[in-house]
Each structure stands twice: as C-alpha cells, then as structure tokens.
Design a protein around this nucleic acid. Sequence first.
DNA 1: TAGGCCATCTGGTCCT
DNA 2: AGGACCAGATGGCCTA
Length: 207
Amino acid sequence: MEDIGLLFDFDQDGSTDFAFWGQMDQNFHFQTQLESFLMDCQAASGQLSPWSTFGCQSVFSDSQLTLTDLDVQSPGLGVCAEGEGCPADEPLEAAKRRARRLVVHQPYKVQRHAANIRERKRMLSINSAFEELRCHVPTFPYEKRLSKIDTLRLAIAYIALLREILMSGADPKSYIDECMKNGYKNQSDAIWNTSDLTARLSWIKWD
DNA sequence: TAGGCCATCTGGTCCT
DNA sequence: AGGACCAGATGGCCTA
C-alpha cells in the first residue's frame, strides 16, 4: 500500500480545509521583499517560505510529499489516511462529496509553492508595465490612480488620437482645439473620442 | 452594503 | 520536465 500522507477535500463543505490557505497579509511589503525572498528560495529550495509566517500557511505538514494520486473514481475507498477518522457509517452522499481528493507529498508542495512565487513575480512584472503605461496616458493632476482596464482603454484611445494627429499633419494643439471647438462633429469615426480622453485633453501640454 | 478592483492561489495548457 | 501563460475562484479593501 502506498504511503498516503495527507488528504484534503475540494468539497464545498470542506471550508475548514481551505482555511489554512489564507491570503498573505496585504500589508506585507511584498514588492520590496520579493526579490530577496526569491534568492532565499533558490538558495534554500524546499524550505518553507516567509509566507508561512505571514498567514499563508500550507495545509501540508513538513512531512508531506509528492502528488501520487488523484482519486476521483472511488470516493471513500482507500483514501483515508490511517488514523484520519473516516467514518464507516458515512452517508453515501457525504462519501460522494468526498470524491475529489488529493494525496499530496512533498515534491508537489514544493513545486506548487515555486509556481506560486513565479506567478506572483509574473504579476508584478505585469503591474510594473501597467504603472509605466499609466505614466504615458493623459490623466488629471487630481485624479486617482487609473484602474488596469481604464488604463488600457485610455491608452488605446490615446494612441488612436496621436495617430490621427500624425496623419493629419496638423499642429497637435490646434488639432485638438479644433476638434473640441467643433464638438468632434467631423470625427464620427474617431475612436479616441471618448469622454475620458476628451476631458483629459485640456490638461495636455502640447508645447 | 453592494459593487468594483485587486492580489493571490490554483490547475490546466502551451511552449521550450 | 519545468517554466510561462492563462482563466477561474476566493477573499480583502475601498467607495458610493
């Protein structure tokens, strides 16, 4: 019999199981510590990360090992760890709800954790690109930070406007002034003519 | 309090 | 095989 280390449910009623996968403390200065942490992780792969001490506690104990089985075929059959209370009189429905179980061992835990770190790093690079993009779209001085979706939409509109100005060969400021003066009557196909962008145009320094 | 936005985790898929 | 990428789920924070 294989060494079944630990089981956990993906059932809706298994909330207590997921409670251990709590989110990282949002006040944690993640960005500044990530790089040094990544280096630490590379130097000491397999060890628990600092997140374990910040509320991102793993459901697995240190002794758990590889993902050896994904038992979705025979709920309740041979999936209970020794001493893990698998009630013999468990109702059939409850047994069915326990169908999706994972047997988890160390390498899976380590791989999953490493993947989480890579994913966070990837998202950080995406976010830094968004920050860079925010610096290149017109915003109001008093405006709060643009959301990601607003940043993308505004960038699209702004690029379209710049392209039109280039194609027209006109002076940018006079082009904008003319457009605003005419209420964009002649710009029915101007995809940049969004309320967001037009409102910001007055803040652009064209000199 | 509901909805928007976001970070994170996760498993699946694709790529090298 | 391992990493990159992606989308869904979840929960926290903030604001109207």
